[in-house]
């Protein structure tokens, strides 16, 4: 990772309750406070009912700290922290569809190999290249592929973990009843609603 703590991008890891509205609350906070999201990736964790968001924002480390504190204020955010880029591993997956005439394929495959990317689809005139790497590496690969003609590309947004034994957080256990309340409140109950006349 080359981005320093004082660089112009900050990576924030947030553990959030997996419940209706949590993404809206987070998105609404960014809109309201005028923070610029570069990427946002959400997925489940090994703890039932808890999701993890990795958010990359533009700005100084002060902005990163403010974002983390504002996120932590949301009740549905269990905790949020700015990740120190030197102390964490950050990865992103990208799929890049690039034009490749048969006579150019060899050249492109060399580039793919140098970047430890792989080819996952091939047609007469195009390739889809898959890469899992840090943000800067993906930028470098796309720079190298651009001369051949990038038809389209998609990126997942960064995910990150702190290096070593440290974890970002310990999640308090929630009993089944409480978890059901938290996960279901705001959702229309499954099954037939009781018929209630006025």
């Amino acid at each position: 990772m080359k981005v320093s703590r004082n660089g112009s991008r900050q990576t924030i890891a947030a553990l959030v309750e997996d419940r209706p509205g949590v993404l809206t609350r987070v998105a609404s906070l960014f809109r309201r406070r005028g923070y610029n999201i570069e990427s946002l990736a959400v997925g489940t964790t090994d703890e039932q009912g808890v999701s993890r968001m990795t958010i990359v924002v533009e700005g100084t480390s002060e902005v990163g700290d403010q974002v983390a504190k504002q996120l932590d204020k949301l009740i549905d955010v269990i905790n949020a922290a700015v990740l120190d880029s030197t102390e964490s591993i950050e990865r992103e997956l990208a799929l890049i569809k690039v034009m490749a005439r048969p006579d150019q394929r060899r050249e492109i495959l060399d580039v793919v190999e140098i970047f430890r990317a792989s080819v996952v689809d091939l047609s007469v005139s195009s390739l889809i290249i898959q890469i899992t790497a840090a943000n800067e590496t993906i930028e470098a690969l796309t720079d190298n592929l651009r001369p051949y003609g990038i038809l389209e590309m998609v990126r997942t947004g960064a995910i990150a973990l702190v290096r070593g034994e440290d974890t970002t957080q310990v999640v308090e256990f929630e009993d089944d009843e409480l978890r059901r309340f938290h996960m279901e409140s705001g959702r229309i109950p499954t099954g037939q609603l009781p018929h209630l006349s006025d």
Partner: peptide, 24 residues
Amino acid sequence: ITGITMPTVKHNYLVMRPDDLAYA
């Protein structure tokens, strides 16, 4: 209304089951 109040409250709830009211 929960969508409307979301940015101006500390927290809000849409309670969908009577069993959840006491918790909420």
